[in-house]
Amino acid sequence: MSISLRDRGQTTQDFVVGIGLFILAVAFVFSFLPTMLTPFDSSTSGGQTAQADRIADRVVHEFSGDSSTPTEIEWDDSYETMDTHEFATEFGLRANDKEVAYDRLNVSLQPLNESTTVVGFGSEYDNQSAASSARIVTVEGIEDPEKCEPACRLVVRIW
Results as ranks from 00 to 15, higher is better:
2 S>D: 09
2 S>T: 10
4 S>Y: 09
4 S>A: 09
5 L>N: 08
8 R>Q: 14
8 R>K: 13
9 G>T: 04
10 Q>A: 15
10 Q>R: 12
10 Q>Y: 14
13 Q>G: 12
17 V>C: 06
17 V>W: 05
17 V>T: 10
19 I>Q: 09
19 I>N: 08
20 G>A: 10
20 G>V: 03
21 L>P: 03
21 L>D: 05
22 F>G: 13
23 I>V: 14
23 I>T: 13
25 A>G: 12
30 F>A: 14
31 S>G: 13
33 L>F: 14
35 T>F: 09
36 M>T: 08
37 L>K: 07
37 L>M: 11
37 L>N: 06
38 T>Q: 10
38 T>G: 04
39 P>W: 04
44 T>K: 02
44 T>P: 00
46 G>E: 10
47 G>P: 00
47 G>Y: 07
53 D>R: 15
54 R>I: 13
56 A>I: 09
56 A>F: 07
56 A>D: 05
58 R>V: 11
60 V>W: 06
60 V>E: 07
60 V>S: 07
61 H>C: 12
62 E>Q: 15
62 E>N: 15
62 E>S: 14
64 S>K: 12
65 G>R: 06
66 D>H: 14
69 T>S: 15
70 P>K: 02
70 P>N: 03
73 I>S: 00
73 I>A: 01
73 I>C: 01
73 I>M: 02
76 D>S: 07
78 S>P: 04
79 Y>G: 02
80 E>Q: 13
80 E>Y: 07
81 T>A: 15
82 M>C: 07
84 T>L: 11
84 T>E: 14
85 H>A: 10
86 E>V: 05
88 A>T: 02
89 T>W: 04
90 E>M: 11
90 E>N: 10
91 F>V: 02
92 G>N: 06
94 R>Q: 13
95 A>I: 01
101 A>C: 05
104 R>F: 11
105 L>M: 09
107 V>K: 01
109 L>C: 09
109 L>I: 11
110 Q>F: 04
111 P>N: 03
114 E>H: 09
114 E>T: 11
114 E>P: 01
116 T>E: 08
116 T>M: 07
119 V>H: 02
120 G>H: 04
122 G>C: 04
125 Y>E: 01
125 Y>K: 01
125 Y>Q: 02
126 D>K: 14
126 D>H: 12
126 D>S: 14
129 S>K: 15
130 A>K: 00
131 A>F: 03
134 A>Y: 07
135 R>C: 06
136 I>F: 11
137 V>F: 03
139 V>D: 00
140 E>F: 11
141 G>R: 05
141 G>P: 02
142 I>R: 03
142 I>S: 01
143 E>N: 12
144 D>G: 11
144 D>C: 09
146 E>H: 12
149 E>D: 14
150 P>F: 04
152 C>A: 12
153 R>G: 03
154 L>M: 10
154 L>S: 02
155 V>I: 11
156 V>P: 00
157 R>P: 00
158 I>M: 08
158 I>Y: 00
159 W>D: 15
159 W>M: 13
